[in-house]
């Protein structure tokens, strides 16, 4: 197996997984900055199957976020092919299929917490009443009721990440992609956020891919993928 080609061998998950959620075949992504081509992701082949828990580690600028964005359908590969056989096609334009927790602020500034959580549901065509109920349930699940009517500018970074996770929970995706969800948080808050993320994934039965450069966070996930200079190098399964 060449470097960058990943296969999972967990017998339990293998039995559950029937079809990969995401399948990347020699996918690469190159950006052009100031006339210079920068390879963010070099040809990579991998699959994410239902129920997987993956820690995607690597130094800053190694291509972790780009790979997650490619998985989420938010970016287009420069070469190679990307498919979502277990998701019935690309997730882009289909709210709720993939839940993404972004590295930076990702809440709509003009909407309060409840509205932010309900937003993907409304975009997915869920009715206003149902969306509100599911948003309330997610708020209760994450115990952030006191934030419900606050605007993003009125809450802290950790609270914002919990709200982003609540948003994922409410939309019940089959694949959760979290890009450095604890990157801007203190250790304790980061621990809590990771706990919530794992519990959410368990509750939904969703696959979870978390990019992080925090070894403690990575250790809480069974599968370890490592990226370096755009290459997916190491496969570890704890």
């Amino acid at each position: 197996m060449s470097a960058g080609q990943i296969r999972t061998h967990d017998p339990i998950l293998d039995s559950i997984a029937t079809t990969p959620l995401v399948s990347a075949d020699a996918v690469s992504r190159t950006f052009t900055r100031g006339g210079i081509a920068v390879a963010a992701v070099r040809p990579t082949t991998c699959t994410v199957t239902p129920g997987m828990r993956v820690a995607l580690t690597g130094p800053s600028g190694s291509g972790k976020s780009t790979l997650l964005h490619l998985f989420a359908g938010l970016d287009t590969p420069t070469a190679g092919s990307l498919s979502w056989p277990g998701l019935d096609g690309p997730p882009q334009g289909r709210p709720g299929v993939v839940g993404t927790v972004f590295q930076g602020p990702s809440l709509v500034p003009a909407l309060d917490v409840v509205e932010n959580i309900a937003l993907p549901l409304l975009l997915a065509g869920v009715g206003e009443v149902d969306s509100a109920e599911r948003a309330d349930a997610a708020i209760r699940r994450l115990e952030i009721g006191e934030l419900a009517r606050r605007l993003p500018e009125e809450i802290s970074g950790g609270q914002a990440q919990r709200v982003a996770i609540a948003r994922v929970l409410a939309s019940r995706p089959r694949l959760i992609l979290a890009d450095e969800p604890t990157g801007q948080l203190d250790h304790l808050t980061g621990e809590r956020v990771m706990t919530v993320l794992l519990e959410t994934a368990d509750e939904l039965g969703a696959a979870l891919v978390v990019s992080t450069h925090d070894e403690q966070v990575a250790r809480r996930l069974p599968h370890h993928w490592r990226m370096d200079d755009g290459r997916l190098l190491v496969e570890e399964t704890s």
């Binding site: 989420a72 938010l74 997730p91 882009q92 334009g93 289909r94 709210p95 709720g96 299929v97 993404t100 972004f102 990702s106 809440l107 709509v108 500034p109 003009a110 937003l119 993907p120 975009l123 997915a124 948003r167």
Partner: peptide, 18 residues
């Protein structure tokens, strides 16, 4: 000035029509 908002909406799955 609200490009970020529209980008977030797109990232959340909003279609062009939405």
């Amino acid at each position: 000035e609200r490009r970020r908002t529209f980008a977030i909406l797109t990232a959340l799955g909003a279609t062009r029509r939405q």
